[in-house]
């Protein structure tokens, strides 16, 4: 397995702020790798470090085994799809896409051919003569993608590329990006704050928090075996229980997490605890029940198809929650 991008104890400080704090990762060639985290967690800075727009304060970054500390962005074999697309407003779509070839003095005929191919790849072959300002958000997104791919990069960096699109379009583009990744076989490094997006598309996900990586794992492992309370809470929703309540429920103060969908109210399961129903929210296919247990809120989700409305508990009534021990995940103490 070839390593496409490797971080060794990379830090990036702005004055006293540690935007990236001693991060080490190895991203394999051909992988769809996501960097997930809330805003300000250092994921975008990491992407900019790979692109070369930022220099690490310390540590080493290698792209295909080559140290890139002194390599400017225009000499790196990576290309970026920017968050707000960064299309050149004074060029039409075709010129935008051909730009990466033009500046490398690729012959005009080949330039145009490859730019048209790249546009066809994102299903915008007809739009070459339009200005970026004449396109919709989704179309601009595709142009940005075609422009980044025309140089045939070995690593494609995507900085929250779907952030500005509405939900339906975002889901459609997620599918297209995944298909494109399979077709091209190159490494995708994808930055997002949307955990659903990261889970749906990635081979592996790195969860960032305050400049550090909390966990790097496959989407399934992240969800089923979160290591820290941050990951448990950020990836999907989880009830993270610690301290006195943990002592009360399982007889140990070590924090654990239990997913809302694993909590039942039919009395089956080794663990049980009593609480008061605080709120019920209807979400279509499911309903979410917030239960107050010794002052802490615990959420559970019931399926509305299995559990008709009539059987939902009432607000203010006592409720006995239970779950199976196998669904509990013990977390590292913070």
């Amino acid at each position: 397995m070839t390593i496409a991008v490797e971080f060794s104890s990379v830090s990036r400080h702005y004055g006293s702020v540690k935007a990236v704090d001693s991060v080490s990762i190895a991203i394999a060639e051909g992988e769809f790798f996501s960097m997930l985290g809330p805003s300000g967690s250092g994921k975008t800075t990491c992407l900019r470090l790979i692109a070369g727009f930022e220099q690490p304060t310390s540590g080493s970054i290698k792209i295909f085994g080559k140290e890139v500390a002194n390599t400017p962005p225009y000499e790196r074999e990576v290309n970026t799809v920017f968050q707000d697309y960064a299309l050149f407003p004074h060029m039409n779509v075709l010129e935008n896409v051909a730009y990466g070839l033009r500046v490398k003095d690729v012959a005009n005929i080949e330039c145009m051919k490859r730019a048209e191919d790249a546009l066809a790849l994102v299903a915008l072959a007809e739009y070459g003569q339009r200005k970026p300002s004449e396109l919709s958000g989704g179309q601009r997104q595709r142009v940005a993608l075609a422009r980044a791919l025309v140089n045939r990069p070995r690593v494609l960096l995507l900085d929250e590329p779907l952030g500005a699109l509405d939900l339906k379009l975002r889901e459609k583009m997620q599918m297209e990006l995944k298909t494109l990744h399979k077709k091209l076989g190159i490494t995708f490094i994808y930055v997002t704050h949307d955990q659903g997006e990261a889970l749906a598309m990635s081979d592996r996900v790195a969860v960032f928090n305050r400049g550090r990586i909390e966990q790097v794992d496959t989407p399934r492992n992240l969800y089923t075996q979160p290591k820290t309370s941050f990951v448990a809470d950020f990836v999907g929703t989880a009830n993270v229980v610690s301290g006195d309540l943990a002592q009360l429920i399982v007889g140990d103060r070590q924090p654990f997490s239990i997913r809302p969908e694993h909590i039942r109210m039919d009395g089956t399961g080794e663990v049980s605890v009593n609480g008061v129903v605080a709120d019920i929210q209807y979400h279509g296919a499911t309903s979410k029940i917030e239960v107050d247990v010794s002052g802490q809120s615990i959420a559970m989700v019931v399926s509305n198809t299995e559990q008709p409305d009539a059987q939902l508990p009432e607000i203010g009534k006592n409720l006995s929650l239970c779950w199976s021990k196998t669904h509990m995940v013990m977390l590292e103490t913070a």
């Binding site: 692109a51 225009y74 050149f88 990466g100």
Partner: peptide, 13 residues
């Protein structure tokens, strides 16, 4: 916007 200059540099200019 400065990201246009970064995009240009990113594309190899």
């Amino acid at each position: 916007p400065s990201n246009l200059l970064q995009a240009s540099s990113d594309l190899g200019a």
